[in-house]
C-alpha cells in the first residue's frame, strides 16, 4: 500500500509537532510548512495526497493559501482540510468557501484526525 503524503501547514510549532507525531505513527509521510506561502512552495515541487492547514498564519493565511491551491489547475482535486476550533464557525465557512474540502476541529483527537483524513482521500 502506498504511503499517503500529508502536507501540514501551521505557524504553531506545537500543532505541527503534534500533527507530525500523530500522522507519522499512523503511517503517513509528513511534510511541513509554516505558512501558506511555504505551503505553496512545497506544492510546486512535491505531490501530496492531502493538505491540512491552519487559517491564521503570517505571510499568507490559510484562506489565501487554499484559494491559490485551487487556482492551480492540477490541485483542484487535492483534498484540503482546515484546522479550526469549535468556536471558529466563520473561519470554517470561509475556508470551505475558498475551496476547503473539510475540517479538523482543534484540539484534535488522534483517531478522529486519522478518520477525517480517510474520509477525504482514496
Amino acid at each position: 500500500m502506498t504511503t499517503l503524503r500529508v502536507l501540514t501547514v501551521d505557524d504553531s510549532r506545537t500543532i505541527l509537532a503534534m500533527l507530525h507525531h500523530t500522522l507519522s505513527n499512523a503511517g503517513f509521510e509528513v511534510l511541513q510548512a509554516e505558512d501558506g506561502k511555504q505551503g505553496l512552495d512545497v506544492l510546486k515541487t512535491e505531490t501530496v495526497d492531502v493538505v491540512i492547514t491552519d487559517i491564521n498564519m503570517p505571510v499568507m493565511d490559510g484562506i489565501e493559501f487554499i484559494k491559490n491551491v485551487r487556482a492551480t489547475g492540477i490541485h483542484q482535486s487535492l483534498p484540503i482540510l482546515i484546522l479550526t476550533t469549535e468556536t471558529s464557525q466563520d473561519k470554517r465557512d470561509q475556508g470551505k468557501a475558498a475551496g476547503g474540502t473539510g475540517w479538523i476541529v482543534k484540539p484534535f483527537d488522534p483517531e478522529k484526525l486519522i478518520s477525517v483524513i480517510h474520509r477525504v482521500v482514496h
Binding site: S24, V30, L31, Q32, T45, E46, T47
Partner: peptide, 27 residues
Amino acid sequence: VAAVTPLRAAAPSGEGEESGGNRSVGV
C-alpha cells in the same frame, strides 16, 4: 491531467526526500 505525472517525476529529491520521515521542505 497528464501534467501531474511529469511534475512529480521532476520533483527534486532534497534532503528531506532521503529522510523519508519528517520532510520540512522550505524550512
